[in-house]
């Protein structure tokens, strides 16, 4: 059964450490070119097609800014 996922990043709280990016098994997350209110490049889901909702990014996020959604299709 195929699954589709999506993440929501609390952009203003993200510090752009990039730990979620290297731990994403499908390479769905990248750092933004623009910055948030604190001046950090925040992470966001670049390619929604790739996300499987595995929660790996959220598990390693030190600031717990990622919420993960998953749906079976």
């Amino acid at each position: 059964m195929a699954v589709r996922g999506a993440i929501e990043v609390d952009v203003e709280l993200c510090k752009g450490c990039g730990v979620c990016i290297v731990n994403c098994p499908t390479g769905a997350i990248v750092l933004s070119k623009s910055v948030n209110g604190k001046g950090y490049n925040y992470s966001y889901m670049d390619d929604p097609e790739k996300c499987t909702g595995c929660t790996n990014c959220a598990a390693v996020c030190p600031d717990t800014v990622i919420t993960v959604y998953r749906v079976k299709i």
């Binding site: 510090k15 030190p62 990622i66 919420t67 993960v68 959604y69």
Partner: peptide, 24 residues
């Protein structure tokens, strides 16, 4: 469809730790 969200025990206060710190 939510499968992971911030624990309700973690307060909304923004952590003062450096980006990527293991403490968080």
């Amino acid at each position: 469809n939510k499968v992971y969200a911030k624990s309700k025990l973690l307060l909304d206060k923004e952590m003062h730790y450096c980006p990527g710190c293991s403490h968080g």
